[in-house]
Design a protein around this nucleic acid. Structure first.
Length: 824
DNA sequence: AGCTGTGGCAACGCTT
DNA sequence: AAGCGTTGCCAC
C-alpha cells in the first residue's frame, strides 16, 4: 500500500476528508481514507499559525522588527512570544506595504499578541488575526478536501486516533483534483416521545433511531419489540443500549459524512443530552475527543456532521414552501415522508400503546426520514464539493456558509495566492456609516397594461459579473492615478473611473470565473444527461455562477471585507446604461419595447419577425464589450401585463406569459405568492390560463362566477382558505398587528414556541371589526367558519379583478348575478 | 429560517 | 375616507 522512500519514513496517498486543530498538542490532524478505503490520520506539528503587522510608512523597519521580537504576553502565568517573524512585501489595496508575518506556537496566542502589537508605535495596523488555523492550513498548502493528497512521514502509535495508520509529517501536498469516488454517507434520524408540544430532552427518551446510507446500509434501533420485524430492525433492552448502539454503529462504519435534517438543532443536541444522563459521550469525532454540541453548530471531526437544512436555508430558493423535510424532499428528489406521524403526539401514542403494526409503521417512518436525508444530500454533495474545490475549505464549513461568506472565502483564498493582505472587517462605527447609505439599483420600465401577442425576450447573460469583468471594476482599480485623464472607463454620471491598464483583483477573478464557466457550459452542451460526468459538470458551472453572481452584492454589503460602494454604484449605473441603450437601439430599429427589468428586454414583434429580432440581436452584441452579451431568452406567443392598483399605468414585476409549449409563466402575481389563499391563487391562475390560451374573457368570467358561488355555498374545502405567512420578527417586536401577528399570538397562547421564522396558518372567520379580530387558526377550522365576503371580495376578486379591468369588464359585469359584491 | 444588493407591489393597521 | 407606515413576498 505504501512504499518506503527512505529508512523509517513512509510515502502515503490518501483522500483528505476532514481536518482539526488541537490547541493542547498544537497539532493539525488530517483525517483521511487511503485508496484502499482504510482510515488514516496524518499529524502535522510543524504548521505555525500567524498574522500580520503592517509597518507605518515612515517607521524604521529594523527598529520595528526589534520591537516585535520583544513583545511578550502573559497567559495563565506563561510567557507568550512570537516564535518567528518574517519581513514581507505585501499588497494591500493598490499599494505595496512592508509587513511582518508573526508566527506563533498556538492559534490562541494570536489574539494575545495581536492585542499588544496593534498598539505598538510603528505599527499601522494588524491583519489576518481572524483566520481559523484549519482554514489557514488548507489555503496556504492549496489542499482540497475530498481529493487525493500525499505525505511523507513517520508512522506513529496513537491508538486514540482510531486509525490503522497514523503518520506524522512536515508537509501534506495535493496529488490531483479528482474527488474520492464513493464517499461513505449515512443519513440518520431519531424519534422521541413528547409530553408537551415539543420533545424535551430532560424528560423524553429517544425511542428509536435509524441509519440509511451508502451500499444500501439500513438499520433501525428501538427498545420496544414488535412481531415480524424486517432484517434491518435491531431490538435493544432500553434507551441506554440504544444510545450505545448509535456509537457502535458510527465506530464500525466510520462514515465520511453523517447527514441529518435539522440535526444540529434537534437530533444531535438531543442525543448528547440523553447520553449525558447515562454518562456516555457521542463517539462522532475520529480522534476520540468530545464533540462540542451547540444549538446550531455541532462540529464533528473525521465523520463530518452535515445538517442539510443549514445549506438549504442559505442557498436554495425555497422561499414559498415551508422548509420541512417533506417539502424539501418533494422538491429535490420527488419523494415524501411516510404519512401518519406529522403530529408528535401520534408518535408518543404509538409508543405508549405499543401495537405491533403501528410500531412497525413507526420504524418505516423513521427509516424513510434517514433515507430522505441521505438522498437529498446525494443531490447537494456535487455542488458542495465544487465549492470545497473553489474555496479550499472543509465540507462542514461550506455546508454552513451563505452566499456572502462563500464570496468572502473565495476572495480570501485568492488573496493568499496574489500576495495580498486580507482587508479588515469594518469596526462598529464604520459599519453604521456603511449601513446608512444606499444606492440606485436596476432600471425597470412600467409596461402598458394589456394582452400582447408574439413577445420576444432578451436578457444580458450574467449582467453584473460581465460588467465587473469588462469594466475592470475592483476596489483597487478605482480612481487610479494612471488613468485620470483617460475617459475610457469613466462612469460619467458618477464622476469616477476604473483603471484601464492594470487588472483588478476582483475583476480578474470574475473574468476567470466567467471564462471557466463558459468552457464548462460548452462541454455540458455536448454531454448527454445520462453521461457519468454530467452531474459534476452541472455542479461546476453552478458553483462558478453562484460565486460570480454574488460578488456584486458582496461589494455593496456593509460588513464586507472588500466593501466598495463606488464599485457597487458603478456596476448598477453601467447596468442601467446598457439596458437603456439596448432599449433605445431596439426602438430605433423599429421594434416595440414593451417591458424591461434590470437585465431583460421584452419586445412585441407586431409586424416584424422573430428572425429580424435575432438579426438585430447580433448587431447589438457587436458593439458590446466582452464578455458582455445580450442573449435570446425565449419567445412567448402571448402575454398579459397587469395594471397597477389605484393608478392608470401598468404594474412592474407583475405579468403572465404563455410559452410555445402551452405552459404558463407567472411573475409577481398573487397566484405565485406564498401568502395568499389557495382558492384565490387557483382562480387567478385559471383565469390567466383561459385568457392567454383561449383569449375568451367571458369564459374566464363564467369560471370566476362558479368559484364564487361555491364559496358562497361553503362548498370549498377549508384547506383552500388557509393563509400562510412567515413571521419575520419575534411577537413583541411588531409595531403593527396585522392578521398574521394575531395568528402568531394565538399559536403562542396555545403553547407553541412562536418567534422569528415561525409559519402561521390562519383563516378569516365570520365576525365584526378588523380583519385581525377575525383570525382563527387553520387547524381545526370548518367550512362553516370562513368569512364568505372576505374570501370573495378580498381574496378572489382582488386577485382577478385587475385582470378583467384590462378587458373593459366592469365589476358589475364580472359579478353579474352576484349580489354581495357591492364593494366593487 | 438574519447579513450579497436594490426595486417594487399590495394589504392592512393606524393616525389624522 | 385618505394617507402613511409597516409588513411580507417577489423580480432581478
Amino acid at each position: 500500500m505504501a512504499k518506503k522512500p527512505e529508512q523509517g519514513s513512509l510515502l502515503v496517498h490518501f483522500y483528505l476528508i476532514d481536518i482539526s486543530y488541537d490547541d493542547q498538542t498544537k497539532e493539525i490532524r488530517v483525517f483521511g481514507t487511503t485508496r484502499e478505503g482504510e482510515p488514516i490520520t496524518i499529524i502535522v506539528k510543524s504548521f505555525l499559525p500567524y498574522f500580520y503587522a503592517v509597518a507605518k510608512p515612515d517607521f524604521d523597519l529594523d527598529e520595528l522588527f526589534e520591537n516585535l521580537c520583544n513583545v511578550k504576553a502573559e497567559h495563565e502565568s506563561q510567557e507568550i512570544m512570537a516564535v518567528d517573524i518574517k519581513m514581507k512585501e505585501k499588497i494591500y489595496g493598490n499599494k505595496t506595504l512592508s509587513a511582518f508575518q508573526i508566527f506563533v506556537n498556538n492559534s490562541a496566542d494570536i489574539a494575545l499578541l495581536n492585542a499588544i502589537i496593534k498598539k505598538l508605535p510603528g505599527v499601522e495596523f494588524t491583519a489576518e488575526y481572524d483566520i481559523p488555523t484549519i482554514r489557514r492550513f488548507l489555503i496556504d498548502n492549496d489542499l482540497t478536501p475530498f481529493t487525493l493528497c500525499k505525505a511523507i512521514g513517520i508512522q506513529q502509535s496513537r491508538p486514540e486516533l482510531n486509525s490503522k495508520i497514523v503518520i506524522s509529517t512536515e508537509k501534506i501536498s495535493g496529488e490531483n483534483q479528482d474527488f474520492i469516488e464513493n464517499p461513505n454517507i449515512i443519513g440518520f434520524d431519531i424519534e422521541t416521545t413528547s409530553r408537551g408540544s415539543f420533545p424535551d430532552s430532560k424528560e423524553d427518551p429517544v425511542i428509536m433511531l435509524s441509519f440509511y446510507g451508502s451500499n444500501n446500509f439500513k438499520k433501525v434501533i428501538t427498545w420496544k419489540k414488535f412481531s415480524n420485524p424486517e432484517k434491518h430492525i435491531m431490538f435493544v433492552d432500553g434507551e441506554y443500549q440504544l444510545l450505545e448502539e448509535f456509537n457502535n454503529t458510527i465506530k464500525s462504519l466510520r462514515p465520511h459524512i453523517l447527514v441529518g435534517f435539522n440535526s444540529s438543532e434537534f437530533d444531535l443536541p438531543f442525543l448528547r443530552d440523553r447520553m449525558k444522563k447515562y454518562g456516555i459521550k457521542l463517539a462522532l469525532n475520529s480522534d476520540s475527543s468530545d464533540v462540542e454540541v451547540k444549538r446550531g453548530s455541532s462540529r464533528t471531526f473525521g465523520t463530518i456532521h452535515i445538517d442539510i437544512l443549514q445549506f438549504i436555508i442559505r442557498t436554495m430558493d425555497l422561499r414559498t414552501s415551508q422548509l420541512t423535510l417533506n417539502a424539501v424532499a418533494k422538491e429535490l428528489i420527488g419523494k415524501s415522508k411516510i404519512d401518519g406521524f406529522q403530529n408528535p403526539r401520534k408518535i408518543t401514542d404509538v409508543w405508549e400503546i405499543g401495537i405491533d403494526e403501528e410500531l412497525a409503521n413507526l420504524s418505516r417512518y423513521n427509516l424513510q426520514d434517514s433515507l430522505l436525508a441521505y438522498e437529498i444530500y446525494k443531490e447537494l454533495l456535487p455542488t458542495q464539493l465544487q465549492l470545497v474545490k473553489l474555496l479550499n475549505l472543509p465540507l462542514y464549513d461550506i455546508n454552513k456558509m451563505n452566499y456572502g461568506m462563500l464570496v468572502e472565502w473565495f476572495l480570501i483564498k485568492n488573496a493568499y495566492g496574489a500576495n495580498q493582505i486580507i482587508p479588515k472587517r469594518p469596526n462598529y462605527a464604520e459599519l453604521m456609516k456603511r449601513q446608512a447609505v444606499t444606492y440606485t439599483g436596476g432600471y425597470v420600465i412600467s409596461p402598458t397594461p394589456g394582452l400582447y401577442s408574439n413577445i420576444c425576450v432578451f436578457d444580458f447573460r450574467s449582467l453584473y459579473p460581465s460588467i465587473i469583468a469588462s469594466h475592470n471594476i475592483s476596489p483597487e482599480t478605482l480612481n487610479c492615478e494612471c488613468c485620470k485623464n483617460l475617459k475610457k472607463n469613466n462612469i460619467e454620471e458618477l464622476g469616477f473611473w476604473f483603471c484601464d491598464k492594470k487588472q483588478g483583483f476582483i475583476s480578474n477573478l470574475i473574468k476567470e470565473l466567467i471564462e471557466r464557466r463558459g468552457r464548462i457550459k460548452d462541454i455540458l452542451n455536448k454531454t448527454s444527461k445520462t453521461d457519468k460526468s454530467y452531474p459534476e459538470l452541472k455542479a461546476r458551472q453552478y458553483a462558478l455562477k453562484t460565486i460570480a453572481n454574488s460578488t456584486y452584492g458582496y461589494m455593496g454589503f456593509p460588513n464586507s471585507k472588500w466593501y466598495c460602494l463606488e464599485c457597487a454604484k458603478a456596476i448598477t449605473a453601467l447596468g442601467r446604461k446598457y439596458i437603456q441603450m439596448t432599449i433605445k437601439e431596439f426602438q430605433k430599429a423599429g421594434f416595440k419595447v414593451l417591458y424591461a427589468d434590470t437585465d431583460s428586454v421584452f419586445i412585441v414583434l407586431e409586424n416584424k419577425s422573430k428572425e429580424e429580432a435575432l438579426r438585430f440581436l447580433k448587431i447589438v452584441n457587436s458593439v458590446l464589450r466582452k464578455p458582455m452579451e445580450l442573449e435570446y431568452e425565449s419567445f412567448y406567443p402571448s402575454g398579459l401585463f397587469l395594471e397597477k392598483k389605484g393608478e392608470a399605468g401598468g404594474a412592474k414585476k407583475r405579468y403572465a406569459l404563455l410559452t410555445e409549449n402551452g405552459e404558463l409563466v407567472l411573475k409577481g402575481v398573487e397566484a405565485i405568492r406564498g401568502d395568499w389563499s389557495k382558492i384565490a391563487k387557483d382562480t387567478q391562475r385559471r383565469v390567466l390560463e383561459i385568457l392567454l390560451k383561449d383569449k375568451n374573457v367571458d369564459a374566464a368570467a363564467k369560471y370566476v362566477n362558479e368559484v364564487i358561488s361555491n364559496v358562497k355555498s361553503r362548498k370549498v374545502d377549508i384547506s383552500d382558505m388557509i393563509i400562510q405567512v412567515k413571521l419575520t420578527k419575534n411577537l413583541n417586536e411588531y409595531s403593527s398587528k396585522g392578521p398574521h401577528v394575531i395568528a402568531g399570538e394565538i399559536y403562542s397562547s396555545k403553547g407553541y414556541n412562536v418567534g422569528r421564522g415561525f409559519v402561521v396558518n390562519y383563516i378569516i372567520s365570520e365576525g365584526k371589526g378588523k380583519l385581525a379580530d377575525k383570525v382563527i387558526l387553520a387547524e381545526g377550522a370548518k367550512p362553516k367558519d370562513y368569512d364568505i365576503e372576505y374570501y370573495i371580495n378580498n381574496q378572489i376578486m382582488r386577485a382577478v379583478f385587475k385582470i378583467f379591468e384590462i378587458f373593459g369588464y366592469s365589476q358589475e359585469k364580472l359579478s353579474a348575478g352576484q349580489t354581495t359584491l357591492a364593494n366593487y
